[in-house]
């Protein structure tokens, strides 16, 4: 029996409530509020209480997908990354870096946003970076 309680932060809105993930034998089984957290002081809303449910959803993507002739096929990471890299490279060569846009996400971490915009600016070479702060 392995049972862990991992402190984390709710990813459902900008409030940033402290949550505790309940992990049993490597599976996320529930969410509790962090009772001593400065933001939420032990409370959560209906979304926060059910934070683990979307993580465990059977609808989650479990593999990268590549569309061939209008249908998705499961691919390995190496294949999928290569397909994407080839497309970006050829489009940048043909139309220039400003023909590519990158939408970063208000739902991923700071580190990932940092890398995503770094990817756009340093790898592609464009400032066409935006996210849904307006929405």
């Amino acid at each position: 029996m392995e049972y862990k309680i991992i402190p984390s932060v709710c990813s459902y809105c900008g409030t940033g409530c402290g949550v505790l993930f309940k992990v049993m034998n490597g599976r996320l089984v529930g969410t509790l509020p962090n009772k001593t957290h400065p933001v939420n002081e032990g409370g959560l809303c209906i979304k926060g209480w059910n934070l683990h449910e979307y993580v465990n959803s059977f609808l989650r993507l479990t593999s990268p997908l590549v569309k061939v002739k209008g249908r998705f096929h499961k691919a390995t990471w190496d294949e999928a990354i290569q397909v994407a890299a080839d497309h970006f490279t050829s489009i940048v060569e043909k139309y220039g870096p400003d023909s590519v846009g990158v939408l970063v996400s208000a739902k991923m971490t700071n580190e990932e946003n940092f890398l995503a915009q770094k990817f756009a600016r340093a790898v592609i070479g464009t400032n066409n970076v935006d996210h849904c702060a307006r929405l």
Partner: peptide, 18 residues
Amino acid sequence: MDAFLGFKEVEGHPIPHL
């Protein structure tokens, strides 16, 4: 006893721990 459920201090916060 196979395991004991108590609390551990994690970065200043008491967190349940097995």
